[in-house]
Design a protein around this nucleic acid. Structure first.
Lengths: 209, 209, 209, 209
DNA sequence: TATGAATGAGTTTTCATTCAT
DNA sequence: TATGAATGAAAACTCATTCAT
């Protein structure tokens, strides 16, 4: 997993024109990643698809990795935002509803662009470990906060552990449900069963929403 | 110079020396994959690390993909064997003990070489999806069989779904527990909590082993 | 994208600000040349180091060569001026004193910025050969004039040759003394020994100044 | 003058075939350097001229600089050998003859392939500073040894300084004589005058060989 | 006049794969 | 069978220069 090359973007685009360029580049990257996979992704191709010169690409991204990383950051970042926005209202609801809401939000976040999410999560994890870690950490924090407020209602006592478990289990089930087992279970089925899993883990038995 | 598409190993090594060569090549592949990632994996380097000539490598593997695939097959295969051995005895035990045993087996299977497991499951999915799928399927099958016998004792009714859930959740928690959160929780803690998670999911509450 | 061949600066900077800009650009060029060598010198970097936009750079210099050439001209020009100032008074002094004075002048001229001098004389010869040649020629002329007046006192008969020898030897000893052998000999030691060398070459033995 | 990239050759050619390849590459490098200059030198061109694939070039040289450096090493190395071979017999001769012989050897060494020497010494110094330094050091050592044996016959007392002076002066005069002043003085003229310079520096007056 | 985004030809470099020995 | 030199298509990356703003 070692990575010795600089991965940070090269320079921030200041003018409107250059922001469009960067956007076009990232979009092209995503498109290629989704359509053809990481193996087929190369900078020349990206530039071409983005309708931008290869020089422009290198003006903003020092190398291929930085490019993919920036895309991941931007995409996962948007997902994180979505989840974050939810934290507040979670506090007010009773546990079952909060759980339900949370799971649905997660689903929606991942489903905005499943294909891209999938590509990033499978092809690119090895680049974006820190990102994945950050995403996991953010999610755990939110969950932990939610759990703390209900410390008395729930079974788990080590809340760190519980948060880690919930995030890991739910996230991976969603991803695998959408990838490996993409055609075996419907989204609703998955969502409902995750709800059961979580609620039983937390309080021993699930009640209808 | 075009890449062939054949993916099967070129010939079965019959003699001892050949087997050692193949083993060395696969080991080198694994090491590079774990230490430096798929991006840095290239056949010349593999040959060098394996202490074998590039010509010899191509004697046994028609192309790069076949090489990586063979590694995945070999490693995941070993994991599958371990799990398979478990199926029989699971049937006889009461649920809690069976669960305990099952979790421990999964744990041990994945823990043989977590890093490699992780590398294969993340970096290489795009090549070895069928393999990863097979592993997951094998595991699900074992779990499913165990669940079927206790159909009446447990809450989930869709046993396919339940098996999918259990395998996915446990697998991912193990992987993340050992990698992302490697220093936050001990193996025992993880194992115990997984036990809780599973048992509650299955029967609503956990009892001591 | 083809490189033009025009080598003259594009326009004379009339206003103060322009002059500052040009100065900054030349200074940056010199700094990069000295610190990192001709290979690493590129116009974008020069502009950046100079704190000037690349567009401005091309406002004053039609191409990269013109840039480097302008630097060489400016720097070597300053050296030439120094030497020129010396010519007159050399005539009046007796040989040993004239020699002493001459060496000191050369020394001072080359010592203003040895590193830059060296960089220009080594890295850039292939561009600025005419300039280096001009410098050498100017120096030779001065020396030659001084020798002519003492034609009878000195051993060498081919004064062209002698002038060439003296300038070459002194110049190179100064440069190498300050770079390659920078820490082996002090400036005074070098100057004194050059004096010996020159005087013996001219009259067969050196006398105290 | 900073240089951060690896400059050492990549691997030693073991088989006869590969030695030929390396030789062809170096020869092509030299040819291009002489005919078109360092600016026009590029790896593709070198490979093409050498009649070798670009891949082969990179098998032996990690980058352009290493390539040029290897050429310089090989060429200057040959020159050094020539000079070194001379050291022994120098000891036996009387000073004037020894001097004469030494200068002639130097001339011959540099004249084997003047054009290449020139190219290396002008275009490439900035890469090969350590080389130039080594060459200078070797030469100084030889001269110093020769001077020591005649400590009583000569004027200079600081033999380190004297050796440094002689090597610097003679070397630079030869080089400039062959480059800047290439058409002004004949080789014989140069050689004779250098002889005068050296001998007068050493003993105050020159005698015929 | 200044700015800096954009260009793209030109170079460098990699690496899967072949093949002579 | 083993070796490792050679190949070259393809990818990565640079940088002098232009031009819209």
């Amino acid at each position: 997993m070692a990575a010795q090359t600089a991965k940070a973007p090269r320079k921030r685009p200041r003018q409107r024109r250059s922001q469009q360029t960067v956007a076009a580049i990232l979009e092209a990257t995503g498109r290629i990643l989704v359509d053809e996979g990481y193996d087929k992704l190369n900078t020349n191709r990206v530039a071409e698809v983005a309708g931008v010169s290869i020089g422009s690409l290198y003006q903003y991204f020092p190398n291929k990795q930085a490019l993919v990383l920036a895309l991941a950051e931007s995409h996962l970042g948007r997902e994180i935002e979505r989840l974050a926005g939810m934290t507040a209202e979670l506090q007010e609801l009773p546990l079952p509803q909060a759980t339900r809401k949370c799971i649905r939000a997660l689903f929606e976040a991942f489903t905005v662009d499943v294909e891209l999410h999938r590509a990033l999560v499978t092809d690119v994890v090895h680049l974006g470990e820190p990102l994945v870690y950050a995403l996991q950490a953010k999610a755990e924090l939110a969950v932990r906060l939610a759990l703390e407020r209900r410390r008395d209602e729930i079974l788990p006592t080590d809340l760190d552990l519980a948060a880690f478990f919930l995030v890991s289990a739910v996230d991976s089930i969603v991803i695998r449900g959408l990838t490996l087992a993409g055609d075996r279970f419907s989204l609703e089925t998955l969502e409902d069963e995750i709800y059961e899993l979580v609620l039983r883990y937390l309080v021993g038995s699930a009640e209808p929403t």
